[in-house]
Simulated scan of single mutants.
Amino acid sequence: MKTKIVITFFILSFSTLTVFAQDPVLKSAFNGKNLKGWVAPENNTWWTVNNGILTAKSGPEKKGSILWTDKEYTDFVIETDFRYDEGTVDTGIFIRNESQQIQMGISGSLKRDMTGSPYIPGKGYPVEALNVKEILKPNDWNTIKVIAIAGYYEVWLNGKHVMSYTSDNYVKTGPIGLQLHPNTEMTASFRNIKIGKM
């Protein structure tokens, strides 16, 4: 039994390393001028672009919003600079649909920063990203990288690996979304958004 477990672990590790070794080419997914390449919500007042920066800002009714890529992805890596500007920032990166995301900012349920952790409906935060408090730069630009291979997710924050998790109920293909959480007053910014196919 132990031999089988070791062999299985080796195969999975080797497969993962093989995929990562491909080092996908990241292409710009945000032109810094407008929302071309993204699907803005109807009557958009939440997402604006100025001087190369994409800003998400809560409206007076605090409805929240999701900005989706106009392309769909299967296995991918997304990297972006981000900054928490004002209020109680609760945002994140949706992975192929609205059900699973990598949290960025303050969790509404836990009332603390869960940047880099996966949120899975029905499971909450099954794992928590490591050492985020030490790595995250408050009120400054940070960089997050998310890799999604089927249901396997990995996250890097400012170049440091902080989380890995395997979801058993992932969606195979879909767009990537940026979230402006409802029922909060917040402003967050993004720039240098890049996406690559694995």
Rank of each mutant, 00 (worst) to 15 (best):
I195W: 02
I95H: 09
N43M: 10
G196Y: 02
K111D: 11
Y170M: 11
G64E: 12
L12M: 12
N192L: 03
E79D: 03
N34R: 04
K194Y: 07
V39F: 00
V77Q: 14
S13T: 12
I106W: 03
E61V: 11
K2H: 10
I147H: 12
E79G: 04
W68H: 03
T8M: 10
L67K: 01
I95G: 04
V6H: 00
N97L: 08
G92R: 06
L130H: 09
D90F: 03
D140L: 01
V49N: 03
P41F: 09
K137I: 11
F9P: 00
V146G: 05
E86V: 02
L157K: 06
Y119Q: 10
F10N: 04
S99C: 06
K63M: 07
I147N: 05
L35Y: 04
D85L: 05
D70V: 03
E98K: 13
S58T: 13
I193K: 02
A148Y: 10
P126F: 08
G124P: 12
V171K: 13
S107G: 08
L12A: 13
D140R: 07
P126R: 10
G32K: 00
T91A: 11
Y125C: 00
F14A: 15
Q179S: 09
F30A: 01
D90Q: 14
T173L: 02
I195N: 06
